[in-house]
Design a binder for these strands. Structure first.
Lengths: 215, 215
DNA sequence: CCATGCAGTTAACAACTGTTCTCCGAGTTT
DNA sequence: AAACTCGGAGAACAGTTGTTAACTGCATGG
């Protein structure tokens, strides 16, 4: 049951969200370390000082944006893992690959600003935000690893190697999402990126299948 | 023969380089889109207006930095390609892999600021700089592809697939370099990153060797 | 040796920044 | 119904920013 929180608290949450939304939009064409507090409040239509009622500074707002962005991606990722996990071993992975890339593409289409923000600030100029993104992505990798461990193909694999594999998938997902973003508005370019992503996943899958071969 | 360029032109080049160096240093803790022109000239000890004698704006300086950074990396990369290309097929690739990762690590140790700049601005907030980095990396991928095409393992491969493979290697190189940078000062963490990078290269190499297998 | 070119300086500008302190007024609690 | 809480407004602050114009002095080419 969701508490019907009072008029006051609801209004506070609403302007807080407005600040986040405005910041995300403004970050389409600059990076967090150059985004000013006044710039954000002006876009929302609120006094500069109101900012402090919600965030200590822009780095703080940045961390909140990370949670918002990667929270929604986490939902999508969990759905993907359970959906493709069910048909593990059913085919050579070709359908799983297509489904994975399509899910990434769909996410980029519905959350372009979030994707851009994560890609941009993953190595960006604000320490706290970098740390937040890195932590969340490491968590994702951990979940992917645990899903892999549940599948029969993982028999005989070392924990370390499973995590390495999961990390490759997560990194690849972020890179593909970013590349798809750059191809926005150009369906041909987007399909080219998707095709490359699928072939890369195929290559990694091949390596995975032969990982335990003798040499 | 290097023209001993006049006193005047030499001095101009010197302050230009000083501006680039100062900017690169300041970019260790912020991103390009938040770096101010006055900040850079102040660090060099020169009047703000002197900046315009060398660059139109900060984006222009950024593009110059891309050329400086990726120029030096291009030298290192070419050395690696010819060095490992010679012993293609001699072993199972294990030595090539170790040599590749060691070269990346050495480059990160000698050019940390350049690596950080490229990683940060690859998806950063300045369009022109992103384009410059993307272009240079695509060029790298092209060169790697051509090296691969020269090796016997490439027989039967489609051009597209070779470029896809080369792209994976280039992307992986940038990610590894960036990860090594974050592990700076912690030899244990650095070795962990290097180990992961080697295993990832091994995995991709396995996929490569089985790419043309029937299914 | 003199006139020209040009890297760098000085001064000034309007615009903008983050942050403080003070105040208001409406939702909440008692 | 009175007292209190607290999100937001307003004004002011000392600094900062990019860009302009007009200058100075020295290396250069005729």
């Amino acid at each position: 049951m969701s508490h019907t929180l009072g008029v006051r608290q609801a209004q506070k949450r609403r302007t807080r969200q407005a600040l986040l939304d405005a910041a995300l939009q403004l970050l389409a064409e600059q990076s967090l370390s150059s985004l000013g507090l006044r710039e954000v409040t002006r876009a929302v239509g609120v006094a500069p000082t109101a900012f402090y009622r919600h965030f200590r500074d822009m780095a703080d707002l940045g961390v909140a944006l990370v949670e918002e962005a990667l929270g929604s991606l986490h939902t999508a990722l969990t759905a993907l893992l359970s959906a493709t996990g069910e048909r593990a071993g059913e085919d050579d992975g070709e359908e799983r690959i297509a489904a994975t890339v399509e899910l990434i593409a769909a996410y980029v289409r519905t959350h372009p600003a979030h994707v851009r923000f994560i890609a941009r600030e993953q190595h960006g100029g604000v320490q706290a935000v970098r740390a937040a993104i890195g932590g969340q992505l490491a968590l994702f990798a951990q979940e992917v690893k645990e899903q892999f461990a549940r599948e029969p193909e993982a028999a005989g694999w070392a924990e370390d190697d499973l995590l390495m594999l999961a990390g490759m998938y997560v990194d690849h997902m972020v890179m593909t999402a970013s590349a798809l973003l750059e191809a926005e508005g150009d369906p041909e370019a987007a399909e080219r990126v998707a095709s490359t992503a699928r072939r890369q996943l195929r290559l990694v899958g091949l390596g995975r299948r032969h990982w335990l071969d003798e040499h």
